[in-house]
Lab assay of single mutants.
Amino acid sequence: GIPATNLSRVAGLEKQLAIELKVKQGAENMIQTYSNGSTKDRKLLLTAQQMLQDSKTKIDIIRMQLRRALQ
């Protein structure tokens, strides 16, 4: 079985993952909103794209940590 310490770690990672998935969803929504907007929305679009990139990276890292914890 999986050690108890790993189980609480997994629960924490799953919570983090859920949050990051919401951030990713929000960033994707912002990108959709701003991509057909005016030029003043360009900065917001770039910010949203950066957020999305960061979020995807975090999600990958969390998933990797989850896999390790579940081994």
Rank of each mutant, 00 (worst) to 15 (best):
G37I: 04
T33V: 12
S8F: 04
L7H: 14
R42Y: 14
Q49R: 12
S55N: 01
N36C: 15
I61K: 09
T57A: 12
I2G: 09
A11E: 14
T5R: 06
E20I: 07
L70P: 02
G12V: 15
G26I: 15
K56H: 04
T33Q: 15
M30F: 05
L46E: 13
A27K: 01
K15V: 05
Q53M: 09
G12H: 15
I31E: 01
D60R: 14
D60S: 14
T57R: 15
N6L: 10
T57W: 08
Q65T: 03
N29Q: 14
L46I: 12
D54F: 05
K56D: 04
G37N: 09
A4T: 10
T47M: 15
N36V: 06
L7D: 11
Q49F: 12
K56W: 04
K15L: 10
L13Y: 03
D54V: 13
T57F: 07
L66P: 00
Q65G: 02
L44D: 04
S55E: 00
L45N: 01
A69M: 09
K43D: 11
A18T: 04
A27W: 15
S38I: 11
D54T: 09
D54P: 00
Q49Y: 15
A48T: 02
P3A: 08
A4G: 12
E14D: 02
V23R: 15
L13V: 01
P3G: 10
E28N: 03
Q25E: 12
T39C: 14
Q25V: 06
L66D: 00
D54R: 13
L52S: 01
V10Q: 03
A11P: 04
N29S: 09
K15P: 00
N36D: 08
P3N: 12
N29L: 14
S35H: 09
Y34P: 01
S35A: 09
R9Q: 10
N29H: 14
I59G: 00
K15G: 03
V10K: 04
A48V: 03
A18V: 06
N36P: 04
L46D: 05
Q50K: 12
Q16E: 07
L66G: 00
Q32S: 11
T57S: 08
S35R: 10
R9F: 12
G26C: 15
N29W: 13
Q50G: 03
A4S: 09
N36H: 11
V10H: 02
P3T: 07
I62S: 00
L66E: 00
T39Q: 12
G12T: 14
E20S: 03
D54A: 12
A27G: 01
K22S: 06
G37H: 04
E20V: 07
K15C: 14
R67H: 09
L45V: 04
L21G: 02
A11D: 08
A27D: 00
N6F: 02
D60Y: 14
Q25Y: 06
T5N: 13
S8Y: 05
M30P: 00
K43H: 12
I31H: 01
I2F: 11
L52M: 03
Y34S: 03
Q71H: 10
N6Y: 03
A27P: 00
Q25K: 11
M30C: 09
R9Y: 15
I19S: 07
T47Y: 14
M30I: 06
L13M: 03
I61A: 09
E20R: 02
T39E: 12
A4I: 13
A27R: 02
Q25P: 00
S38R: 04
K43G: 09
T57M: 14
A69Q: 03
L13T: 00
M64L: 11
A11F: 05
T57V: 10
L70V: 06
K43R: 09
K43N: 11
E28A: 04
Q25F: 05
R67F: 12
I62E: 00
G37W: 01
I61L: 11
R63K: 08
D41H: 05
G12F: 15
T33W: 13
A27Q: 02
I62C: 01
L13A: 00
R9S: 10
A48I: 04
M51G: 01
P3I: 06
E14G: 04
L52C: 04
L44H: 05
Q16Y: 04
Q25G: 02
A18K: 08
Q49M: 11
T33E: 15
L17Q: 00
Q16L: 11
T47D: 10
R63H: 05
T57L: 11
Y34H: 05
